[in-house]
Design a protein around this nucleic acid. Structure first.
Length: 116
DNA sequence: TTACTGACGCTTA
DNA sequence: CTAAGCGCCAGTA
């Protein structure tokens, strides 16, 4: 809080969270897809970093964000009481060995679903 | 100010 | 098929 504290979200993370919040239940997306939608194509790392900042924000279903392989890479950062895999399974997502099985069917791409 | 890190993605060997 | 390296941007120390 130093400059323009009265301003609204001025972080790239906020945009990421908003997109993640738009992910329908039972669907998942990839870091690169979000990054590309925000214009930071190729900067998938930033999306993951944004998720790190989403800690404490229940409105950000980071568990619906996985890597392109459909692997729950970030589950290690989740709350041990609410594992990423369990949450996905609760929504109907089939996850085996931290890997989404029907990812091809539940994959949700913001640049497609939101269509720009 | 610079340097390093980071929940990834893709290309090349 | 698997393994490793490079590239991206933003935030924190």
């Amino acid at each position: 809080m130093s400059q323009k504290e009265s301003n609204e979200k001025s972080s790239f993370f906020q945009d990421v969270w908003e997109v993640v919040k738009l992910i329908p239940k039972g669907r998942v997306t990839s870091y690169g897809a979000i990054g590309a939608y925000l214009g930071r194509k190729g900067s998938a790392r930033m999306v993951g970093w944004a998720m790190n900042a989403s800690h404490g924000d229940d409105a950000v279903p980071a568990h619906r964000v996985v890597n392109k392989q459909g692997l729950l890479t970030g589950k290690h950062h989740f709350d041990v009481k609410n594992p990423m895999q369990v949450r996905l399974e609760e929504e109907g997502v089939v996850v085996v060995d931290n890997k989404i099985q029907n990812m091809d069917k539940i994959y949700w791409d913001p640049s497609i679903e939101l269509e720009l």
